[in-house]
Amino acid sequence: MSSVKPLRLTYAFDAYCGWCYGFGPALHEFAAANAERIELRVLSGGLFTGPRALPVSAYPHIPGANERIAQLTGVTFGEGYRAALTDGAVVMDSADAATGLVALRSRPGANALDAAAAMQRAWYVDGRSLSDAEVYRDLATDLGLDADAVAAAYASPAARTEAEADFLEVRRLGVDGYPTLLLHTAHGTDRLGGPVSSADALTHALDQHLAATAGA
């Protein structure tokens, strides 16, 4: 058993961020490839909160952005999601989504990155609102978690408070866009890659940091 401390990383994302959806597969591959040496936490950034929590129809740039995301990352957007875009009524409320992530990731045996990906599939594939408590019951079941416990957590003030703490922590870290993957170092944080980085590119960036640290 290695006694080397794992490298700490923070993934700042938003469940309603299309670029985060596009980045997800590469990040998952990177996390799996480096599982023995990294410790990854997932925080919600709060992209659509307060006056920005509006029906998806209020953001007419989204379909065009999705085309670009698909071209650059290879992800696909599902029929359910396209129907939700056409209807335009789903309110994108990142505070609700962040609370849902807290409810999922706080369960024993939960993997926060898997939970985040499941939430994004619910929206970007199936077109389901991330403000719907039933979504979290279904995701909990899919993830092998206690659906009743997740539903109770989603409804709790404590989960909402923790979600708001995520937003504050992301701001404290200086994140100004999503997705952002940060490596915590002795002197602060370094950003690894960008929205269209491959898993190999992320691993290479991590290796470069380690080599630079070793040579310092």
Rank of each mutant, 00 (worst) to 15 (best):
G174R: 00
L183F: 02
A205F: 04
L72T: 15
N66G: 13
A147T: 04
N111C: 05
A70Y: 04
H204K: 13
L40S: 06
G100T: 03
S131A: 15
H187Y: 06
T73L: 03
G177L: 05
G88D: 08
A117G: 12
A212F: 02
S156T: 09
N66T: 06
Q71E: 12
F167G: 00
A122P: 10
L192Q: 07
E169T: 02
T213H: 05
T185D: 06
A32S: 12
D146T: 15
V56P: 08
G100Q: 04
P157V: 06
H28K: 13
T161L: 06
P157G: 06
M92P: 05
G88E: 08
Y21K: 05
Y59E: 12
P179V: 03
A98G: 02
M119E: 08
D132S: 12
G74H: 10
A33R: 13
K5P: 10
A159N: 07
G127Y: 14
T213Y: 05
Y136E: 11
T203L: 05
L113W: 05
G18Q: 07
A84K: 07
A26S: 10
F167M: 01
L101V: 07
R171V: 01
L113M: 06
L85A: 03
G88F: 10
C20I: 09
R41L: 10
A32Q: 11
G194A: 13
L43R: 11
D142T: 15
A58L: 13
E67F: 07
L145P: 13
G127K: 15
E36F: 01
A152E: 14
G127S: 15
G109C: 03
A115C: 10
A186Y: 00
P25E: 00
A149L: 12
L202A: 14
S2D: 13
V4P: 03
R191W: 02
A199T: 14
A214L: 08
E134T: 09
A65W: 09
T185Q: 01
L47M: 12
M119K: 06
E169M: 00
S94V: 01
R137I: 13
V4C: 05
L183Q: 04
R172S: 01
L130V: 13
E162H: 03
G78K: 09
P55K: 12
W19Q: 08
V150E: 15
Y16M: 09
Y11L: 15
Q71T: 08
N34M: 10
N34R: 11
